[in-house]
């Protein structure tokens, strides 16, 4: 579903990403681990075509994102570190707008409310302005957008950082549900524990390179931490 082939990105002579090749299949949850500046966000931006690759290609559902940028976004949902919404609008209005942008302008209010319910947003919050929302609530609206759009691939950029444990837990549960439905998930994160819990695979990045890929079923939590630190040291 998500595919990077020899993907490379330089910013003014600095290499942000070097020769990345990876595949995320439907149902996979691929977690990118790595320090700040390791190239995780760059990878996600490249899939979103927010930045253009220096070489290599990123594909979504087999389509090159630079050539068919709008087409590929139909399959895609993106959840940044904090889902920023229009403060003056209610959660429901935000959801309605974004799903309309995604081509789902036919959704009824009942359907939209149902999506918000599915992601666990308190029913009374749907008609409140987003300005009053906590971060956890915003992330839930983000997932609701993905649901409404029926996205086949999900790009997550440190979606749980700064969430309280309960909210983070709820978020992971939602993620698990999506992956069971056959969504391909690519998630950048610092949280080794979450990566082990929700991911099917983890990739460790360092200075723009993917240095190691592991199946989460193969390693325990302690092992993962040890391997990660090993790669960080040398």
């Amino acid at each position: 579903m998500l595919e990077a082939v020899h993907l490379t990105k330089h910013y003014n002579g600095v290499t942000a990403l070097e020769d990345l090749t990876l595949r995320v299949n439907p149902g996979d949850v691929f977690c990118l681990l790595g320090a700040n500046g390791a190239g995780k966000t760059t990878t996600i931006n490249l899939f979103l075509n927010f930045v253009q690759p220096s070489s290599g290609t990123a594909r979504i559902n087999g389509l090159d994102v630079t050539e068919q940028s709008l087409e590929t976004k139909k399959y895609l949902a993106y959840i940044p570190e904090t889902v920023m919404l229009y403060k003056n609008l209610t959660g429901l209005e935000n959801l309605e707008y974004f799903s309309a942008l995604a081509g789902r302008s036919d959704c009824t209010r009942v359907q939209l409310l149902d999506f918000l319910k599915q992601v666990g947003l308190q029913p009374e919050a749907a008609d409140q302005r987003v300005g009053t929302y906590s971060k956890g609530m915003r992330q839930k609206v983000g997932i609701a957008i993905a649901l409404a759009k029926n996205a086949r691939a999900l790009l997550l950029d440190e979606p749980t950082s700064g969430l309280d444990p309960k909210a983070a837990n709820e978020f992971s549960a939602l993620l698990a549900r999506l992956s069971q439905d056959g969504v391909a998930v690519l998630m950048a994160t610092h949280d080794l524990f979450r990566a082990k819990e929700s991911g099917t695979r983890v990739g460790i990045m360092r200075q723009g390179k993917l240095v190691r890929t592991l199946e989460t079923t193969e390693v325990g939590h302690a092992d993962l931490e040890r391997i990660y630190l090993e790669h960080m040291h040398d």
């Binding site: 979103l48 927010f50 976004k73 940044p80 904090t82 920023m84 974004f98 995604a102």
Partner: peptide
């Protein structure tokens, strides 16, 4: 600056 632009542009719209 609000951060909504990236979310909007992650939808199929130019």
């Amino acid at each position: 600056e609000q951060g909504t632009l990236v979310l909007a542009l992650s939808q199929p719209i130019s």
